[in-house]
């Protein structure tokens, strides 16, 4: 085993041993703080809302399945459209991609 490998293994071991008590204590504190965190509300107060915010809030409150379907479809459609538009801009700038050779 080379000296370089022995030194790097020793260094890594020291770092790990030193972090154990710190991480353990941190985790205990984190769990205690998580228990104190307040529960999230599952309905939205629509009194002060209007426009698109009101539509989204109503859907969220009344039909969660429809809300989930809408979120998933909107993200898929928007992701595709934006990627297409960005691709067009990049092509116009000359940054077109084709099959590449895989160099290491």
């Amino acid at each position: 085993m080379s000296l370089k490998r022995i030194l790097s293994t020793a260094l890594l071991s020291i770092v790990l041993v030193c972090t154990i008590p710190v991480v353990d204590q941190a985790a205990r504190t984190a769990i205690a703080s998580e228990k104190q965190e307040t529960a999230l509300s599952m309905t939205i107060d629509t009194k002060k809302l209007s426009g698109i915010n009101l539509v989204i809030a109503r859907m969220y409150n009344e039909d969660r399945v429809l809300y989930a379907a809408m979120v998933t479809i909107v993200m898929a459609v928007l992701g595709t459209v934006l990627a297409f538009l960005t691709d067009l801009v990049l092509k116009a700038l000359g940054l077109e991609v084709s099959r590449i050779s895989h160099r290491e």
């Binding site: 698109i52 989204i56 979120v71 992701g79 934006l82």
Partner: peptide
């Protein structure tokens, strides 16, 4: 899908973030 069923996706934020993310990903 599963997080939005549980009501834990903020769609407006995800929508706005996706504008930057789609450009960045390309």
């Amino acid at each position: 899908l599963t997080y939005s069923l549980k009501g834990r996706v903020e769609i407006i934020a995800a929508f706005i973030m996706l504008i930057g993310a789609s450009i960045g990903a390309q």
